[in-house]
Design a protein around this nucleic acid. Structure first.
Lengths: 253, 253
DNA sequence: ATCTCCATATCGTTG
DNA sequence: CAACGATGTGGAGAT
């Protein structure tokens, strides 16, 4: 994984390294004092300060400050980067089309610029998502409600797809909406839209709606009640219900 | 803006630079081959590959690949970082409390590590947000509807705060929900919650609900109709309606 | 600390 | 391409 780094370079040398990085499709980092202008879905200006700029070969651009998780400015993947020298400044420009967005970074000084040839093909393995919660219910529908019969996932309605569609022990249709974390009123409204869409299709038959999440906020609880919807508490992770082995020696006697 | 950089360092030297960076509250970047394990709100594993790791003095940690705008793994501000050598590996660990989250990065090799002393106090000036849309309407309520009287912003209801609360020319209450971009069914449900909350408070009086956004999706349009809500098309940006000066010389004659 | 909602949200998936 | 919904959403403001 070769890396080419310049420390306290002239802007001309920095410009050269950046351009060769573009040509070779490499990741670039630039550290220096710069100002940033953005115009697109919104528009912004950031007065001069020291920042870390990252340019990725897929067209991503990030401007990071010394605080916060999110970049202060950015361009999404697919953008086109370029660099030029102008009036004793190094200017990095990034343009995106559809929607049209422009970002311009003007460096007064560059203290470090690096070309990074990055090899990374591994996939992230993530557990604890909404999909895991769905699998948990499909593997054992009774944890939702005794006698629950899961009949379809992502069942289409005029209001959008239902996470799990099924019936209770009496054959009453149920729409199930899954959330991996504590939910507010928005999730209740979402479930309500699906239930009402199902009811419009079969005006004669009542439809139950069950929200599945670890917990709900108080306002969401009120809304569930007023809309006649139900709540079941479940987390994406399996609870560890295994018993410690050889724990109750005395009790066995 | 001093910067200390090591290229292709031993893990021992990399460890030393990282530790001194922690002590001085500086931003750190580490480039190298690593694997990443996360456990907290969810859990994940990322097999070895070459990545750029950023550690900020506020406790933020970012792991960036050569693609995508979002980091593949991260820790939010407020986390506590540490580094250690173990079994010919450099291990960077980050812990957050409330909720408890751990992230561990195991470096097989480090090709570059940098300490960056970053000075940045400027504020971002952003235009085109929902707040600008609100200002636009408050400055000239007639652009929403002739005779509209804006009476409050963020007015509290049992369903949450209404962006703009007012009355039409007839004195009928109106709840206005603002969105800076094209909206789907979620925004319609949100507005509907506010309107129903207002109607519960004054069962005798009808309440109008107006969604203000650049445009709506087809499904949102259907939902607006079925819920008896209205839509007004507006963008956060002022339209430039000024006439070119001296354009119609001939027409003047 | 929790709750609520905005965001240049980003991202994957589907039609 | 638009649309729809998940996200370890992040972040701000209010309570």
């Amino acid at each position: 994984m070769p890396v080419s780094t310049l420390t306290d370079p002239t802007l001309k040398d920095a410009h050269y390294l950046v351009d060769t990085g573009f040509e070779h499709g490499e990741m670039l980092t630039i550290v220096g004092k710069c100002e940033v202008d953005y115009d697109g879905r919104a528009s912004s200006h950031l007065a001069p300060g020291e920042r870390l700029v990252i340019l990725k070969p897929d067209g991503t651009l990030l401007v990071h400050r010394n605080k916060q998780r999110k970049p202060v400015n950015w361009q999404p993947p697919g953008s086109t980067h370029s660099a030029r020298l102008d009036d004793n400044r190094l200017i990095v420009e990034s343009v995106r089309s559809s929607p049209h967005e422009e970002l311009e970074i003007t460096f007064q000084t560059v203290v470090q610029v690096s070309r990074l040839e990055v090899d990374d093909v591994s996939d992230l393995e993530l557990e604890g998502s909404e999909e895991d919660l769905r699998q948990r219910i499909l593997a054992d529908p009774d944890i939702l409600e005794t006698g629950f019969n899961a009949m379809a996932t992502e069942r289409e309605t005029s209001a959008g797809p239902i996470d799990i569609y099924g019936q209770d022990a009496d054959g009453t249709p149920i729409a199930v909406e899954l959330k991996r974390r504590r939910v507010g009123p928005d999730a209740v409204s979402q479930l309500n839209r699906y239930v009402e869409a199902l009811e419009r299709n079969r005006p004669s038959k009542s439809v139950r709606g069950i929200l599945v999440a670890p917990s709900v906020t108080e306002r969401a609880k009120q809304l569930l009640t007023s809309e006649g919807l139900e709540f079941v508490s479940l987390t994406p992770e399996q609870e560890d219900i295994s018993q410690p082995i050889g724990f109750s020696e005395d009790a066995d006697k």
